[in-house]
Amino acid sequence: MKVLVPVKRVIDYNVKARVKADQTGIELANVKMSMNPFDEISVEEALRLREAGIAEEVVAVSIGEQKCQETIRTALAMGADRGIHVLHDGETEPLAVAKILRALAEKEEPKVIILGKQAIDDDCNQTGQMLAALLGWGQATFISRLEIAGDTVSATREVDGGLQNIELALPVILTTDLRLNEPRYASLPNIMKAKRKPIDQYTPEDLEVDPAPRLRVLRVVEPPGREAGVKVETVTELVDKLRNDAKVI
């Protein structure tokens, strides 16, 4: 069984995003970029399926500029077997990404596709669900537990009030939540090995997908700032302020 893992190159988790002066987007020149944190969890889960003998091959996919190959190399260094890069300069929206991934799924015929529940740049939380719809597969989103036995997938989803357990049959789309696993670090020998692993390249045109965005971004601005308030010295003073100044208790 093959597992496909889409990985997105995004602004690093620890970098604060700055809005461009011309309000067209976020400043990404000379900013540290990394693999989307939820996608690291996806890669880890795919590797665990392979190590458990459930999956034979783990294929990492990334869509975007040439530098996305660095993100694919990160997945390969963690242990993925090979990569696919769909070269596209410019913005991509979840619907176009889902269409590209559908085309790849039809070529590669994976039984499981594991995606991060959301990317920390556009915060959309859409691609996995959209891909499931386009392929006509079942979906288990925001999962914190996964078991695959034969054709049966049992998953625990993180929902607003707690946890929800569902069962599905392969093939399936999974999207990962934080507590599913703790992603491994790539070891130095594995980083060296990753350099020799193959990465195939396509364009959206090769896959007959129009990647043009549907939404027009009119402007991107900074949210109104919050002024730092005052320091209080004691708990008594705090309660007094909350009660008599802010009047919130």
Partner: peptide, 20 residues
């Protein structure tokens, strides 16, 4: 988590780019 799970699936079937 309900809306986030359901809506993108419907959006893709309708070929519309959801606004989250």
């Amino acid at each position: 988590t309900f809306g986030k799970d359901v809506m993108p699936r419907a959006a893709a079937l309708l070929d519309t780019q959801q606004i989250s």
